[in-house]
């Protein structure tokens, strides 16, 4: 009796193990949680783009001029370009570790649509790169004598814009993840596609300084984000399949 009970319960457990409950939402949350935990355990990787951002911003007054007026005039563009490069720097590792240890292949084999699962990975990338950069930017803005009244807009435009940057960049990261030296190629592929986001992001901060309406810029940043949200996951999924199978 006990033996049959044991085998029965064992059978139940194995059945329960093979077919986990829950569908897309569970898979999405599981991917999100796993990536968050993994990234938070590698703190230096999370910190590096932020330190890079701070160092690059430090270089400009040294290289150009410490004159506050001059710096204030170019601060919106400098902050945006430096944040963009910092976000780009962290892209290469987006799929790299998963590709090396084979968990990316497991992600491809899941019954859930790959496009949505990659969206979870991109969301983690934004949470740990784009959002901290956006929060840190006002601090660096003070150092560049950014005129008052534009700090909130700077953080907001960066938060909105870096989400699009993460989505677009993930396409490039997925295309180059199978290549051993994909880093420089990645920036060559991705930077031209970043230009619209840069224009409207830096434009929003400029408009805030000049006292113009910022809503147009922010609305277009939002539009770019929604377009990227709709289209980029499919391109990322297709690129990952190419990189894995090739």
């Amino acid at each position: 009796m006990s033996a049959t009970d044991g085998s029965l319960s064992g059978g139940d457990m194995s059945v329960g193990h093979v077919e986990p409950q829950g569908g897309l939402t569970v898979a999405f949350c599981a991917t999100l949680k796993r990536d968050l935990v993994l990234m938070l355990r590698r703190r230096s990787e999370v910190m590096n783009p932020l330190v890079f951002f701070a160092i690059v911003i430090t270089l400009f007054p040294i290289g150009i001029s410490p004159d506050p007026q001059l710096l204030a005039a170019i601060a919106p563009g400098l902050l945006w370009v430096a944040a963009l490069l910092a976000a780009l720097l962290s892209l290469d590792s987006l799929f790299r570790a998963d590709y090396d240890d084979g968990s990316l292949e497991q992600l491809l084999l899941t019954p859930q649509p790959l496009a949505l699962l990659t969206l979870a990975k991109v969301a983690v990338h934004w949470l740990l790169t784009g959002l901290p950069l956006a929060l840190m930017a006002p601090l660096l803005g003070i150092m560049l004598a950014l005129p008052a009244g534009s700090y909130l807009v700077l953080a907001l435009s960066l938060a909105l814009g870096t989400a699009s940057l993460s989505l677009i960049g993930a396409i490039g990261a997925a295309l180059t993840v199978g290549l051993s030296r994909g880093g420089v190629l990645l920036s060559l592929l991705v930077l031209p596609l970043y230009i619209p986001v840069l224009i409207f992001g830096a434009g929003a901060v400029q408009a805030a300084i000049l006292g113009d309406g910022i809503m147009a810029h922010l609305a277009i940043l939002g539009a770019l984000l929604s377009l990227a949200l709709c289209l980029a996951p499919w391109a990322i999924a297709a690129s990952l399949r190419i990189s894995i199978n090739g």
């Binding site: 396409i171 295309l175 180059t176 199978g178 290549l179 994909g182 190629l185 592929l189 031209p192 596609l193 230009i195 619209p196 224009i199 409207f200 277009i220 770019l224 377009l227 289209l231 391109a235 297709a238 690129s239 190419i242 990189s243 199978n245 090739g246």
Partner: peptide, 29 residues
């Protein structure tokens, strides 16, 4: 950059399609 021709072809195709969606956006911005 790819060693396998098939991967190279498909990757270049995806990038060309991504680029062509972006060209009007870049132009207008």
């Amino acid at each position: 950059a790819f060693t396998s021709r098939d991967s190279a072809s498909r990757a270049a195709s995806v990038l060309a399609m991504v680029g062509v969606i972006n060209i009007p956006i870049i132009k207008y911005s």
